[in-house]
Nucleic acid binder design. Structure first.
Lengths: 338, 338
DNA sequence: TTTTCTTTTGAAAGCGCTTTCATACAGAGT
DNA sequence: ACTCTGTATGAAAGCGCTTTCAAAAGAAAA
């Protein structure tokens, strides 16, 4: 930390007031008379005063810092949510401290521990699955926590209905006449988002009296390459599916790439639907039918909710954002029965 | 901040030593006798002691926090670098404080100001262009700064030769016999990476005695959609190019999508090369010829360099990482002269 | 044995800010 | 005039840790 910085007491001297007054000018300006406030502000500007965050945190017990625990930053949906979160928090004077665990529960616990030690004022988490140790850390700390994407009932959270998303995508394909529908999700272990989407897909099939043979469901890395591999696997079956649902858009796009590389036409030979609605999904060819998940808004709303809780503002503490089917060009009627 | 936390003094009492000793057990364990150290550690573990970061920062003048100023997180290359950076820093006991400015210079200055006030121990920046105010803030603060991707001579930095990358991609196309080569970059204003790549492309053309007519160079958003638009623009020319260089892979992939959507075969009708080597670039169809930029390593090395500087360890303070041409399937011989 | 280091520990003074608590002084009410 | 508010400011006590500085206790040197 720069030790040559202007201190509050110097501003106080320059302005001819006590340190307490300068402190109030910063954090509770309405307590001061307009003249004093102006004088202090002038002095502060003149000296280029910047309060020391560590000292404020120590003295006030508030660090104006929120911790975010993400699975990874190396995925557009999370980095996008993060971006939105940080923009919103910045607006309210909070800073974001980021940690990512790469889908490891142990690493997640470590992230939480580190952020707690860092003295964050609140924690925003993605997903609701965590080991007992992590859960206990959170409970002990007594810090406000906002969960995103998924959460247990009652906990403050900004959610999307992942199951509904899986349902919408799959129903759409069923409505188009598909009967053999493949489902490629990311690993469902320690990933309740993917699990929910998978459940939704199953439910849609059950509703329609269809089944999901084990061969038609597979788990892959949540990457384009994973999508290609999963698609290859399904297409190599004796009875390949006529449609595939990807647990995330990247997987779905990988499916399209693989199918096209094999000379299949989309959607004539194979329909593909995703979930997420990445920016790029509208721009691939053919454009991807998907379920829109308001990723950035999750970030914004989680940040808002966090700040509201910290300020003791009343308001809903659980918010479910809608997901919508976006029909584009990658899905079409099932080929006539062969 | 949780006010119910165990304090250092309580550990001291439990261990029957002075607070100073507990403090040393944490930060300079070799100063203590093994027995004392063990006793203190046992007491700390037993009570579940976690030092308060704000208090440590205030007392020691070091926050063990590094600030990173990124253009955006909504781009795989930056989020990937960030991810690597944070992993490396975590290993050395540092935390990352992230701020992004979305390619706005004013916002960048504000980011820097905020991070400085936050009391970071050092700053990692992407790119070297910034307004005078920001540069002055940095100079005044006297904090160690590591720049990445681009930097002025002499400043501590982890670089890639963007110009060379542009050169490699373009030379490759020229070697394949292409003469009309289009160049689509991201906005070059306040983006020295894109500018460098563009310069490299020009230089390659000049080397070969070719020119880059203004119509064949365009700037687009650094997204897949931007690539599609730029490609559409170039293909609609009376004399369209036979090859296109994208300033980043996402643009190049957008070009492929657009060309394929128009029924063009790649690389038979149009060659496309990118720069970055995203994970997905190897998996699109056809796979993308590109220049590999060691994105994650930039993050890791920048973090390492930062820590080395903070520890006053000797070592090089500027590191240039190599970029390599990766020839894949999206580029091929120029079509015979029409 | 005495002196001189070293090594290990403790006492105490902050780090720069916030926040009671107390005080001073307006103006309002009687 | 005299209390009763309420508002604006200051004094001073920390927040939980680090870090001199000094002291105590051995070990090594003389």
């Amino acid at each position: 930390m720069a030790r040559n910085r202007i201190r509050l007491s110097e501003v106080a001297r320059e302005a001819g007031v006590s340190p307490a007054t300068v402190s109030r000018a910063i954090s509770q300006p309405d307590l001061l008379s307009p003249e004093t406030l102006a004088r202090v502000r002038r002095a502060a500007d003149h000296l280029g005063y910047r309060p020391d965050a560590a000292a404020r945190a120590l003295a006030s017990g508030r660090s104006m810092t929120i911790g975010a625990v993400m699975p990874t930053l190396d995925n557009a949906i999370f980095s996008k949510a993060l971006q939105a979160m940080q923009a919103q928090l910045a607006e309210d004077g909070y800073q974001l401290l980021v940690a990512s665990h790469d889908y490891s529960k142990a690493a997640e616990a470590e992230c939480i521990r580190t952020l707690l030690a860092r003295g964050v004022d609140g924690l925003i988490l993605v997903g609701a699955e965590r080991i007992a140790e992590a859960a206990q850390l959170l409970a002990q700390s007594g810090l406000p926590v906002v969960m995103t994407w998924c959460a247990p009932d009652g906990a403050p959270s900004v959610l999307v209905d992942n199951e509904h998303a899986g349902l919408l995508a799959t129903r759409h394909l069923i409505a188009l006449g598909h009967r053999r529908i493949g489902v490629i999700t990311g690993a469902t272990r320690f990933n309740d988002r993917q699990r929910g989407r998978y459940r939704g897909a199953r439910r849609a099939l059950e509703e329609a009296g269809l089944t999901l043979p084990p061969a038609l469901a597979c788990e892959q890395a949540t990457t384009l390459a994973g999508g290609r591999m999963g698609c290859a696997q399904l297409l190599d079956l004796a009875e390949p599916p006529t449609a595939i649902v990807g647990g995330i858009d990247l997987i779905a796009i990988g499916c399209m790439v693989e199918a096209q590389a094999r000379g299949l036409a989309i959607p004539a030979d194979l329909s593909v639907a995703g979930i997420d609605d990445l920016d790029m999904s509208a721009h691939v060819s053919p454009s991807l039918t998907t379920v829109h998940v308001p990723t950035a808004r999750i970030g914004t709303e989680a940040a808002r909710m966090m700040v509201a809780i910290l300020r003791d503002e009343p308001g809903p503490t659980t918010l479910t954002l809608p997901v919508d089917l976006i029909v584009r060009r990658s899905t079409g009627p099932a080929p006539a029965r062969g």
